[in-house]
């Protein structure tokens, strides 16, 4: 909705307010959707993954898995990785759809850009490769979130000290490192791959 406001006022300076739809669509699908959805998932799910695995580490549940002759990676990391790979593109798609309709609510209903202009121009300028770019980004962000959060939780007793303080540090580090990696990786994907 903010994007709708800002986009409309910026475009209307050049007499291009008809392009509000493509602007909101491209910004959300290619950039803001994947990145903001990933940052939100990092804050909510990444921290939970790191804390849960960290607590399993300090309460010796991971040692118990090892002593049963089972591979802890299979039980702790693989399910989180698969969940992230499935959920992040879906959440990004939801974010994009809600964002596009939010932009229409402001641009169309409040500021007078017609629905035909908003969605018609968007359909004209937004291509399949733009949608794929967003999906590829969200998939790679899913890998980053699952990998960093699991790693930080799994090694919380080793790299961040033992006990609850170690888990707390691991959780903080998981969120900070995931967020920074998402932004850096987003830059590289945008600049090199697309």
């Amino acid at each position: 909705m903010v994007l709708g406001f800002q986009g409309f006022y910026s475009l209307s300076r050049f007499g291009s307010d008809a392009f509000l739809g493509p602007m909101v669509g491209l910004a959300l699908i290619k950039e803001l959707g994947p990145v903001i959805a990933a940052l939100m998932v990092t804050g909510r799910a990444g921290s939970a993954i790191a804390a849960e695995i960290g607590i399993m580490r300090i309460s010796e549940q991971i040692d118990a898995l090892e002593l049963m002759g089972l591979n802890p990676y299979r039980y702790l990391m693989v399910p989180n990785l698969i969940a992230a790979l499935i959920c992040l593109p879906l959440l990004t798609a939801l974010f994009d759809v809600v964002g596009i309709f939010g932009g229409y609510l402001i641009g169309g209903k409040l500021l007078g850009v017609g629905a035909g202009t908003y969605f018609g121009e968007m359909a004209h300028y937004v291509e399949m490769k733009d949608v794929l770019e967003g999906i590829y980004k969200s998939l790679s962000f899913g890998v980053i979130i699952a990998w960093v959060s699991c790693f930080k939780g799994y090694y919380s007793g080793i790299y961040t000290g033992f006990g609850s303080e170690g888990v707390s540090k691991a959780t903080t580090q998981a969120v900070v490192l995931s967020s920074v990696l998402i932004l850096v990786w987003d830059y590289f994907m945008t600049s090199i791959l697309f």
Partner: peptide, 19 residues
Amino acid sequence: LRAFRERLGFLFQGGALFD
């Protein structure tokens, strides 16, 4: 190590039950 652990049982101080 995995083969050895097939023969091993370990009772942890805190139980280490899966929550």
